[in-house]
Each structure stands twice: as structure tokens, then as C-alpha cells.
Simulated scan of single mutants.
Amino acid sequence: MKLIGTLTSPYVRKVRIVMAEKKLDYELVLDDVWGPDSQVPAHNPLGKVPCLIMDENGALFDSRVIVEYLDTLSPVGRLVPPSGRERTQTKLWEALADGAMDAAVTARLEQTMRLPAQRSQDWIDRQLNKVAATVDHMDELLGEQAFCTGVNLCLADIAVGAALSYLDFRFPDMNWRAGHDNLDRLMQKLMTRPSFTGTQFAAPK
């Protein structure tokens, strides 16, 4: 399998962490989706990463779709419950984390892709307020549990970890750890895992 992505995307990192936890072999193909020579549009009409090129030459896109597929490829470390309330809880956590990533990425693009005179600080603030509200909610929801849905690592924790580490990477001044001891404790635990330490964000050179 080939994973087309960047080292700055939280969605790509989420997929890479899942692949590491599932012990799946793949080739990471770095691609600039904003560049004229991007490979992504040939496989994903939305022009977004991550994009997974499978061995049978099919393609999957959207991190939520990709990670659910990857979880079926190996019995090692099942990350998504097959059905019922546990599955719903896991997908709810993923929706919260992905929503925070969506808002953070939107704010980042507004800051970097528009000329200063064209930027809307109100729009940036609106997105970052969404992030802050979601972090508050996730911290309360987590409480004193070891992991998001109980005692075992699952996709919920990976999605939350990808989101929070993206805030560290792109919005360090937000200091999301302040007042969020539960999430801070979870993040410290996640950062002891090779799947997280081996997939750190990296800015383009």
C-alpha cells in the first residue's frame, strides 16, 4: 500500500498512527497538494490528503474511511468496535477530534493562504473558539478514565492525540493543556507509544 500525504497534516498523522498500531507495511509518498504536480487529484477528486493507494490499485480517501478499512486488515490491536454502543462512542470521539482538526486547519489556512489585507480575524477567532469549546468538552468527557472509551486504546484516543498534537504544532500559544488535566494525562500516555513518537509533525524544509 501507498499513503499519499504530508508531514504537516493531522489527518495523515492519524492514519499513520493507525498503521503503526496495526503493524501494517506501507510506503509514505510525500505530496504537495497545492503544487501543480500533485499526484492527489488523479486518485481523489477532492484533492485532499490522506489518500491510500491499495495493492489492488484502488484508492481510498478521507481519514475516517481509511482508518476503518485499515482496522479490518489485521486482528492486531482492534481499534474500532464492530457494533453497538462502544462503536458509537468511538465514532463520537473521532467526530469531536476531527471537528477540532477541521476548525484548526481552517484557521491555519486563513492565516497563511490569504494576504494580510484579505484575512478575517473574526473568522479565525470563530474557528479557534470551536477548538477551545471542543477541548473543554473532551476533557470533561474523558474524566479520570485511562483512555477515551475506558481501559483500552482505540481509534478515539488516536484521533484525539492527532488533534491535540496538531494544536501543539500549529497553535502553541493556545496552550490547550491549561485547565485540561485529563487530556494532558492522556497525551502524556500516548506520547510513550512508538506509533506517536515515530510520526511527529515536521514543517517543510
Results as ranks from 00 to 15, higher is better:
70 L>W: 08
72 T>I: 14
72 T>E: 12
73 L>E: 07
75 P>F: 02
76 V>H: 09
76 V>I: 15
81 P>W: 05
89 Q>L: 14
91 K>Y: 06
91 K>Q: 14
92 L>E: 07
94 E>W: 11
95 A>S: 05
97 A>S: 10
103 A>V: 03
103 A>I: 02
104 A>N: 09
107 A>F: 04
108 R>N: 04
108 R>C: 01
109 L>C: 00
110 E>H: 01
110 E>M: 00
112 T>D: 01
114 R>S: 00
115 L>A: 03
116 P>W: 04
119 R>H: 00
121 Q>M: 03
122 D>S: 04
125 D>W: 02
126 R>I: 02
127 Q>H: 02
129 N>C: 00
131 V>T: 07
131 V>G: 11
133 A>H: 13
134 T>I: 06
136 D>C: 15
136 D>R: 10
136 D>I: 06
137 H>A: 12
138 M>F: 08
144 E>P: 04
145 Q>F: 10
148 C>D: 15
158 I>N: 12
159 A>V: 09
160 V>L: 13
162 A>K: 11
163 A>P: 03
169 F>G: 06
173 D>T: 02
173 D>V: 02
174 M>L: 15
174 M>I: 04
176 W>Y: 08
178 A>K: 06
185 R>A: 14
186 L>M: 09
186 L>R: 10
186 L>Q: 07
186 L>C: 12
186 L>Y: 06
187 M>P: 02
192 T>I: 11
193 R>E: 12
195 S>N: 14
195 S>L: 15
200 Q>V: 09
201 F>G: 02
203 A>R: 02
